[in-house]
């Protein structure tokens, strides 16, 4: 089961990174980045379950909070009102 989950998550990361590399505009790259952070938040929780380590859950929570703030900052910067 774990290998199937890993395969889907690797494919998801692959397509998101591809869009980030190809994206014609800055916004496309930021959208890809936003998706990557959500995928890694879920991936960290799954990793914590596979390794049976509670600390990964805390890491994923803080990662989610920081990525939210980061994406909001980039959005404000795009608008020109930082």
């Amino acid at each position: 089961m774990i290998y199937i989950y890993a395969a889907f998550i690797i494919l998801a990361v692959f397509f998101a990174v591809l869009r980030g590399l190809l994206g014609p505009t800055t916004s496309d790259r930021v959208v890809a980045l936003d998706n990557l952070t959500t995928i890694s938040t879920a991936g960290l929780v799954l990793l914590g379950f596979v390794f049976q380590r509670f600390i990964y859950i805390d890491v994923s929570l803080i990662y989610g909070v920081l990525s939210f703030v980061g994406v909001l900052t980039i959005a404000r910067y795009l608008e020109g009102g930082l």
Partner: peptide, 9 residues
């Protein structure tokens, strides 16, 4: 998660 990434692609 995979379908979302395929969507943005």
């Amino acid at each position: 998660l995979f379908l979302g990434a395929l969507g943005i692609f």
